[in-house]
Design a protein around this nucleic acid. Structure first.
Lengths: 160, 160
DNA sequence: CGAGTAACGGACCAATTCGGTCCGATTTGG
DNA sequence: CCAAATCGGACCGAATTGGTCCGTTACTCG
């Protein structure tokens, strides 16, 4: 658990990199890949994902590329890594009803007893990453972000 | 991210199951597997892991089996799932120096810039699971556990 | 208008991880 | 001694992951 995949890593690097440049700067995938030192084809996929998530804006054709659409303060950590993390469910049998079809395991769902606790814990961790803004994350690395954990305590009471 | 693997799931189920029985009850792997409805051979590995982590105590021979060594209040969430989650590092290049040997990626470690924030965030999430006791987790599912998130805020300031 | 540039997206591949099984060795109690 | 139980390594198939390749589409600039 707790491991982000490579794509998310590249996504974070991309956002940070673009944020350091003057606002509105447009960079092509190729150039971005070069500057970050990551495989170009893979980064291309990441950029497409970030565009679909409305984190980046893309412009095709000559002179085109990607630019940030929001400021770091308006971007949440989860917005950036979310598109590349499929299973935030923490436990296989609590995923979407659609996917749960294949799991024979859910037959003992009622007796299992850890499903509900896990799901609750998951919601909490999830909400923490949903509250963490990218600028909090980048400077302080969450230390700053979760220094506001007192607020979370308040919200936790309505989750639990 | 945020997904525990099957072994951890079985570990949580095991601890919960044993905790419901009279304290000190000894159950064999076979019987435990039957009652939980999970594959026996795999559960055996989980039980061995939990024993190594000193969560369970094992006794061999006829009439043997496993029993809890600590109460739910003394058991932390991370004690139970820890033995089965190898990569809590959140990002591949910040793992133990030993494993980092193979990664060419770490050559850009200094310029990367997201390593440090990720590692800090990781420490925070990790510490939350280290504070969450198993009884908090089981009733309330972390809602109760993280209602003490205010305390975490205090601790966060020395982490960040 | 047309050539070049860059995003788009699907197919594919190798390597790793994961869930699970099998089997033999060892210890222990009756 | 025998049966019950833990122990632990080897192994396997399937799923996931990190990464590549290539063709298509859309746009811009000369």
């Amino acid at each position: 658990m707790l491991k982000v995949n490579r794509k998310s890593e590249y996504a974070l690097m991309t956002v940070q990199h673009l944020a350091r440049l003057p606002a509105g700067t447009v960079l092509a995938a190729q150039q971005l890949a070069e500057e970050l030192g990551v495989p170009e084809d893979l980064l291309a996929k990441v950029l497409q994902g970030l565009k679909r998530a409305e984190v980046l804006q893309a412009s095709k054709g000559a002179g085109g590329g990607y630019r940030l659409v929001r400021t770091l303060a308006e971007l949440r950590f989860i917005d950036v890594i979310g598109p590349f993390e499929d299973h935030m469910a923490m436990v296989s049998c609590c995923e979407t009803p659609a996917r749960a079809a294949g799991s024979a395991m859910c037959e003992r769902a009622e007796s299992c007893g850890v499903r509900q606790p896990i799901s609750a814990l998951n919601q909490l961790l999830h909400s923490q990453m949903a509250q963490l803004t990218m600028d909090q994350f980048l400077k302080g690395g969450g230390g700053a972000g979760l220094r506001s954990a007192a607020e979370l305590a308040a919200e936790a009471s309505l989750v639990g």
